[in-house]
Amino acid sequence: MLKNGIYSAQARGMTGFVTAKLEISNNKITFVNLDLSTKTPQYGQKAKGKIENEILAKQSANIDAGAGATFTSNGVKEAVKDALKKAEK
């Protein structure tokens, strides 16, 4: 069970940190905002919307690494996992 609220966490990507901010409502992830500003525009930042949508669709940190954005995806996975741990009851 997840507590309602907004939770965020940070993890290291290839060129800096990524931040995941999740909104939890009724035991579901209802909003995802990723800060990938330290990532390269052509790879990490380009994948932002796709990764956010995948987290919402899967309701999980278990996302597929995007081509060219493997380190970014791995950082996002860790940040999302940490944010979800904070939301656990």
Score class of each variant (00 low, 15 high):
residue 77 K to W: 01
residue 52 E to W: 00
residue 59 Q to S: 03
residue 6 I to E: 04
residue 62 N to A: 13
residue 29 I to F: 02
residue 4 N to P: 03
residue 23 E to T: 14
residue 2 L to W: 13
residue 54 E to A: 10
residue 54 E to N: 13
residue 63 I to K: 02
residue 53 N to C: 05
residue 41 P to S: 06
residue 79 A to W: 09
residue 35 D to E: 07
residue 77 K to T: 12
residue 78 E to D: 14
residue 15 T to L: 04
residue 56 L to R: 06
residue 47 A to F: 02
residue 72 T to R: 10
residue 19 T to Y: 07
residue 45 Q to A: 03
residue 65 A to T: 11
residue 34 L to F: 11
residue 64 D to Y: 09
residue 32 V to D: 04
residue 70 T to E: 00
residue 40 T to D: 07
residue 45 Q to C: 04
residue 32 V to W: 04
residue 83 A to C: 04
residue 22 L to T: 02
residue 1 M to L: 11
residue 84 L to P: 01
residue 38 T to W: 02
residue 31 F to V: 05
residue 84 L to C: 07
residue 60 S to T: 12
residue 23 E to Y: 07
residue 70 T to C: 03
residue 65 A to I: 02
residue 77 K to G: 00
residue 13 G to S: 11
residue 36 L to S: 03
residue 7 Y to P: 05
residue 16 G to V: 04
residue 85 K to M: 14
residue 32 V to T: 12
residue 44 G to H: 09
residue 16 G to D: 01
residue 45 Q to F: 05
residue 14 M to R: 09
residue 76 V to E: 03
residue 21 K to Y: 04
residue 57 A to N: 13
residue 74 N to T: 07
residue 66 G to A: 11
residue 50 K to I: 06
residue 83 A to Y: 02
residue 39 K to P: 02
residue 66 G to K: 10
residue 71 F to W: 10
residue 35 D to F: 03
residue 75 G to H: 02
residue 20 A to P: 03
residue 22 L to E: 01
residue 61 A to W: 15
residue 47 A to C: 08
residue 75 G to V: 00
residue 48 K to S: 03
